[in-house]
Design a protein around this nucleic acid. Structure first.
Length: 505
DNA sequence: AATATCTGCAACCGCAGGTCG
DNA sequence: TCGACCTGCGGTTGCAGATAT
């Protein structure tokens, strides 16, 4: 859409003149000496004036532009117009595939730092990138697709693995040192700025959250958190009773776990703990979503379609995504406050599990008796935990931790895991079956058509995993990514990554 | 063909941080 | 130190074109 090519007359007639609010928005009441400031689309004549002025005087001092050139535009508007449309070094046209991929990579690392991303994409503006991303997010959310391609998740994992091994910041950190102070315990505020749980990461039946989402959290930050062995050895590999660790959160999530908290109402969330056992949710933690998963859970738990009391929607107390940004910033979501409070305190960093547990599952008898392992969180931390466990599998650590955990060293995870966790009644069980069976190379899921999988006690509709980046053309039906051991085990990482790259492209 | 809905983009808005007097 | 001003950033909105009904 090129406004400048439109009729100037029409534009002029359509565009309202400035108002006091505009003056305020445009930098402190700069009215241009009484000249009413214009709003709305720019005309080609205005563009010409602006280009001419900037050519002669250079960029900057934008209010002077309005003063000296006679443009009835506030300096802010001039700057925006110049930066986004008139700059000679701007690259026009659609993003190239390379640029698109770069954007995704950058977003995985930075989050919504559009200006930073623009600096890394010559000729592109932050606005352009932002629009692109938002459009892409919407599109993929509608399609129930993950936002981050798996290989980018792997990339982030890989970088953090390197961090872990080298004990130093990755090159990425060096590249963006100011906003990636990612050490073992420090969580950049930006990472959780928009920490809202989204259907991509949490089962929609459990959480009804407005847009703006965990998707905005850079994948890298999620991943980075969990990849520190020291952290895991301290807080995950320990067999702290979940309820005890829960209490650690209670102090912060005050009111959430008190006796009146609906979170304790187990009846509201049947089999919730099983979500945490479910590989599909693990996959979702990495953005590997399954629309089938959602459908299933929706079908099976119609009563939980609303907002969970105590879920982030409530924690936040800021359910409207259109709330003024200031309110968002001043009134941190509880989770964010939690994150901030963790900081470098001497206490072990509460895991995402805590968050997840709070949101997804009330402490139940079953969870108390069985879920001694963070794997049960079902979120990224669980993936990472399992990876750590895999590394330590030679020592059989995981078996010591709990009788209820999946033996990840078992090469037949899709069977063992299924039998162990696949509650034939639980939608999670179904989901897990779907995931694991799809993983099975011999599952015969090559067909484009959804398949019915007969599992012990249940019938599972097999749905294709679509990791297609933008057009959904790729055949990425193999949910191998959901396997934490494959995600993180260094022995299989590279071929896995190659595989993912292959199917993603 | 008319209307409704969706989509993408340009521009606006409010805020924060920096600079300067 | 304080306030005014400037600049930049990220979120949001409004509109025109595209697509669906």
């Amino acid at each position: 859409m090129s406004m400048t090519s439109e009729s100037d007359d029409r534009m002029t007639s359509n565009v309202g003149v400035d108002s006091p609010s505009v003056e305020e928005a445009c930098g402190g009441g700069n009215t241009g000496g009484g000249l009413p400031l214009k709003k709305g689309p720019w005309t080609s004549a205005e563009d010409a004036i602006l280009v001419d002025y900037v050519t002669k005087h250079g960029e900057g001092n934008w209010n002077a532009v309005q003063k000296h050139s006679g443009l009835a535009r506030c300096g802010k508007s001039c700057r925006l117009r110049w930066a986004n449309h008139l700059r000679p070094d701007l690259k026009k046209g659609a993003f190239t595939p390379e640029e698109e991929r770069r954007i995704i990579e950058l977003h995985a690392k930075m989050g919504n730092k559009w200006a930073r991303m623009a600096a890394d994409l010559p000729g592109r503006t932050d606005n352009e990138i932002k629009n692109y991303w938002n459009t892409r997010i919407k599109r993929r959310q509608r399609a129930g697709l993950p936002v981050y391609p798996p290989d980018i998740c792997f990339q982030a994992i890989s970088e953090n693995k390197q961090n872990e091994e080298l004990g130093a910041f990755s090159s990425t950190d060096a590249q963006y040192p100011d906003f990636l102070p990612m050490n073992n315990y420090e969580i950049p505020a930006v990472e959780f700025k928009n920490l809202e749980f989204n259907q991509q990461l949490c089962p929609p039946p459990l959480l009804d959250i407005p847009s703006g989402s965990l998707l905005d959290i850079p994948a890298r930050s999620l991943l980075a958190q969990g990849l520190n062995s020291a952290y895991y050895s301290r807080s995950f590999l320990s067999t702290v009773h979940p309820t005890k660790r829960m209490r650690g959160s209670e102090s912060v999530f005050s009111g959430l776990n008190d006796d009146s908290s609906p979170l304790k109402n187990n009846d509201s969330f049947p089999s919730c703990h099983q979500y945490q056992n479910d590989g599909s949710l693990l996959a979702q933690s990495l953005g590997f979503s399954s629309s089938y998963y959602r459908n299933l859970t929706s079908d099976h738990h119609p009563t939980s379609l609303g907002v969970i009391p105590g879920s982030h929607a409530h924690l936040n107390g800021n359910s409207s995504s259109s709330e003024p940004s200031r309110a968002k910033k001043l009134e941190l979501p509880s989770l964010q406050s939690q994150m901030a409070s963790w900081g470098l305190s001497s206490s072990p960093l509460p895991s995402l599990e805590s968050v997840d547990t709070l949101i997804q599952s009330p402490p139940t008898d079953q969870t108390e008796s069985c879920n001694l392992s963070p794997r049960n969180s079902g979120l990224l931390d669980a993936v990472l935990y399992e990876a750590q466990t895999m590394r330590a599998s030679k020592n059989n650590l995981q078996q010591e931790s709990s009788d209820d955990v999946v033996d990840n060293s078992c090469p037949d995870l899709h069977e063992t895991g299924w039998e162990t966790y696949g509650d034939p009644i639980s939608p999670l069980g179904h989901s897990a079956a779907s995931v694991f069976s799809e993983y099975t190379p011999t599952s015969g899921s090559s067909s484009e058509e959804p398949q019915l999988l007969t599992m012990p006690g249940c019938k599972v509709k097999q749905e294709k995993f679509d990791f297609g980046p933008y057009d959904g053309k790729e055949d990425a039906s193999n949910p191998i990514f959901s396997r934490p051991d494959y995600l993180l085990d260094s022995n299989c990482f590279s071929p896995m990554q190659n595989y993912v790259r292959t199917i993603w492209r």
